[in-house]
Design a protein around this nucleic acid. Sequence first.
DNA 1: CCTGGGATATTTTTT
DNA 2: ATATCCCAGG
Length: 733
Amino acid sequence: MRIDIQRLLADLNEPQRQAVTHTEGPVLVLAGAGSGKTRVLTYRIAYLIATGTALPWQILAMTFTNKAAQEMRQRVATLVPGAELPQWVGTFHSVFARILRREGDRLGYDRNFAIYDEQDQLTLIKNGIRELRLQGDEINPRAVRGAISKAKNQLIFPEEYERKAETFFEREIVSPLYHYYQRMLKTNNAMDFDDLLVQPIVLFDRFPDVLTRYQEQFRYILVDEYQDTNRAQYTLLKQLAQRYRNLCVVGDDDQSIYRWRGADVGNILNFQQDFKDCAIYRLEQNYRSTKTILGAAHSVVRNNVNRWEKRLWTDRGEGEKVGVVATDSDREEAFRVVSLIEREVYQNKRSFKDFAVLYRTNAQSRILEQALRDAGIAYEIVGGVRFFERKEVKDVLAYLRVVCNPAESFSLKRIINFPLRGIGATTVSKVEEFARAKQIPLFSALERVDEVPAIAARTKESIKHFVKLINKYRSLRSELSPAELATALVEEVGFRRMLKEEGTDEARDRLNNIDELLYAIASHSSNAEDPSLEGFLQHVSLLTDVDSWDDRANVVTLMTLHSAKGLEFPVVFITGLEEGLFPLANSAMDQRDLEEERRLFYVGATRAKEKLYLTWAASRRRWGMEERVSRPSRFLMEIDSEYIELLGERDRPPRRARRPERPAERRSPMPAWEDESQEPNPIYAGRRVHHPKFGHGTVIAVDGADERARVVVLFDAVGEKTLVLKYANLRPA
DNA sequence: CCTGGGATATTTTTT
DNA sequence: ATATCCCAGG
């Protein structure tokens, strides 16, 4: 073992080594971007295990994504071969969900509690607005959701919220809805994301014996990305670390980018106050980026007033200058990004997986996606509409949730009449009324439908049929594997048949998504620690965007600046550097918001190892229509000019063919090409075309000109349709 | 009870 | 441009 430890420490620089070997007592590690923060955490875990200081199950480590947790565990496995791996490594949310599953019954939750995502939350709030008869039109459910979430993160419960409510909105709207919302979560045996942090605090407060047990277990606690913890998370850490005080947090105030969701950089200051004897280590050597990239990133972030001045250094070379690209439009911006990628691949022999294209808002991904697709470059978008939030996936998940957790009336209502089986809204509310009167869950009321008044015999039959279906799968749980059960259920419910009959491309995508879901269930039950269906349902609720990212595929990665935190790429593009977009318009008003945008830029820029490109577009289309004209971002001006070079028109790489500009006016209906490929591809009668929704078809006629041109297409799958050419998005097939 | 057309909001970032 | 919501008519 001793040799292993020496070799282990040999991989570290001096401050890293100190942070790793200082195992006893509170430790604060201030770690700049690319300074080996994750390395310190991983080696610290390995060190604790290898020296016998801690047993693997006595270590609790919080990471920012589940993927990071997985990688950390694998790394530990190679550093300490043969040792048992620590099981308590994960995001705050997944770790505490696990604790709640074990202990939640103390708070009146079943261990199979559901986890509600944002859509579920909003539906719940909308139901509340209706049930409480609040003036629905004037209420923005999102604002209510935000207010409730904010309150929860500050550990303010409905009763206290009611007492403290000041404004009309707080007193008359949020307060009653907050009460309703919490009550409904409880009766549905469900929690939202905030509850996963707040309920454990309640649990530990109310049941000191439970707290003591976990305090005893977790003798060594490690936290990554500490600058982005919120009040609830900090409270949890304090509770758990109180006894042994072996708490090691790693963070960088310059990379704090979640203030808007309650994260508090002040937690770094709090830490020094709450743990006065804490040791502080600073990691200032950057191993990731060139001097130029670091210099450019620093020249922006140093404009922040609220930060501790520090400067990262590197012994890497100067590297290439940061390339700045100005374009007229968002389309051109996307096109230039693609061209630059092509040039880097061609001239510098890079692979597609070397590139990340970052943006401030998810909406920007579409046009980039289009440009990449047109150029035939494989890409993957991280985030955006998440896989597990797609309608068809959520529908199947809702069935599975109900099978596992019949008290969960919310999912039940989602599927009770999908696919249509003649159980409409009126019937459901009658049964709900009955359920309320009898104080039983909705599903139990459905089982006793014969006692419910005023329901047509035919409808009763449908309900009995549905109840039978669910109960059948409830009992099959013990006989079939999760994947077998889900597959049989998808088949019996008729998802596959329904989508096949639809026959459109979209339906095929949906079908693929369902198959992918079934595959995910199968692979979960062969890998996971908790292979049950319940385990899977909990698991998918807690996935982060980055978790489902395949970082080995040789494709260009597209993601938001937020998602990019903690990652690195040889070449990074930061796009949309315009006033109003990055920094976002409303942030320019508030100094603290503006500083957060600057930190976001800093995070983005320091993802780059070798080359950084910054792009902006003078005009950008918003929701398909109006053009927005912008000036370049102030961040571009803040960069010292020595670090940048302007890439003008003539630095454009040679192109295979220039894409035609969309002509301002089209005189004849014939040369109306919607396709963005190298050659104009007119749409004309007799042409085979492809439509994203309707699939392949043949053009029968083209009517009218210019903006108003219409095409009549006979689609193979759905028959004849008349489409406005401008919007039809037809491609020659 | 179900369908489809029209109106409407959507774009800040996420566990 | 697209997703979702709402309502009238079948």
